[in-house]
Amino acid sequence: MANHASAEKRNRQRIKRTARNRAAKSELRTALKKARSSVKDSVAEASTAVITAQSDLDRAAAKGIIPKERASRLKARLAASLHKASKSATAG
């Protein structure tokens, strides 16, 4: 337990920051799930869902919620899956 006023303050800040980051991470995971499921279901809706998810990933990386490289990797995978789905939709 914190014994100094500064340590108590840091603890309060940690609790606030953790709650904020947890909420943002949860929103990010939801956006990713929506994007992935829309790519599987309908290509028309998938484009906007993927753009939204990529924007959320950029925002999370900028705030330090997730590492920048992970955001980049997830964005690339989303784009690749969207491209593959749109290619198969037009071909077949």
Results as ranks from 00 to 15, higher is better:
residue 8 E to G: 05
residue 26 S to F: 05
residue 78 L to M: 07
residue 2 A to K: 07
residue 71 A to L: 11
residue 5 A to V: 15
residue 16 K to E: 11
residue 85 A to R: 03
residue 19 A to S: 14
residue 54 Q to C: 13
residue 36 R to K: 12
residue 26 S to R: 13
residue 21 N to F: 08
residue 7 A to L: 10
residue 40 K to E: 15
residue 24 A to S: 13
residue 30 T to K: 06
residue 16 K to H: 05
residue 57 L to I: 10
residue 76 A to D: 08
residue 75 K to H: 10
residue 6 S to N: 10
residue 70 R to F: 08
residue 50 V to T: 01
residue 1 M to V: 09
residue 45 E to R: 08
residue 30 T to G: 00
residue 22 R to Y: 04
residue 70 R to L: 15
residue 24 A to G: 00
residue 82 L to I: 11
residue 31 A to P: 02
residue 29 R to D: 08
residue 38 S to E: 08
residue 90 T to C: 08
residue 61 A to F: 05
residue 76 A to I: 04
residue 83 H to L: 11
residue 13 Q to S: 03
residue 10 R to C: 03
residue 66 I to H: 01
residue 64 G to D: 02
residue 39 V to I: 15
residue 77 R to S: 09
residue 62 A to G: 15
residue 62 A to K: 15
residue 48 T to W: 00
residue 52 T to L: 03
residue 49 A to E: 10
residue 42 S to T: 12
residue 62 A to N: 13
residue 65 I to W: 00
residue 22 R to T: 12
residue 68 K to M: 12
residue 40 K to F: 01
residue 87 K to P: 00
residue 26 S to A: 14
residue 43 V to F: 07
residue 16 K to L: 10
residue 82 L to D: 01
residue 35 A to P: 00
residue 79 A to E: 15
residue 69 E to W: 03
residue 45 E to I: 02
residue 16 K to R: 09
residue 29 R to F: 09
residue 21 N to G: 02
residue 18 T to D: 11
residue 18 T to L: 12
residue 13 Q to R: 06
residue 31 A to C: 02
residue 77 R to T: 07
residue 19 A to P: 05
residue 62 A to E: 13
residue 24 A to F: 03
residue 66 I to K: 05
residue 57 L to S: 04
residue 55 S to M: 00
residue 38 S to D: 06
residue 18 T to R: 14
residue 73 R to M: 10
residue 51 I to F: 09
residue 44 A to S: 12
residue 12 R to E: 11
residue 65 I to K: 04
residue 61 A to D: 09
residue 81 S to I: 04
residue 9 K to C: 01
residue 89 A to E: 15
residue 80 A to S: 15
residue 89 A to I: 13
residue 35 A to Q: 00
residue 21 N to A: 04
residue 58 D to T: 04
residue 5 A to I: 14
residue 56 D to F: 03
residue 73 R to K: 13
residue 25 K to G: 12
residue 10 R to V: 05
residue 49 A to N: 04
residue 82 L to V: 05
residue 26 S to I: 01
residue 21 N to E: 08
residue 20 R to H: 07
residue 14 R to Y: 08
residue 78 L to C: 04
residue 82 L to S: 04
residue 81 S to N: 09
residue 90 T to V: 14
residue 86 S to C: 12
residue 80 A to K: 09
residue 58 D to E: 09
residue 14 R to V: 02
residue 88 S to H: 11
residue 92 G to A: 15
residue 82 L to K: 05
residue 80 A to V: 09
residue 35 A to W: 00
residue 44 A to R: 14
residue 33 K to W: 02
residue 36 R to T: 04
residue 61 A to S: 12
residue 12 R to W: 04
residue 5 A to E: 14
residue 67 P to W: 02
residue 53 A to W: 01
residue 70 R to G: 07
residue 27 E to M: 14
residue 37 S to V: 01
residue 45 E to S: 12
residue 37 S to I: 06
residue 56 D to M: 13
residue 65 I to F: 07
residue 27 E to V: 08
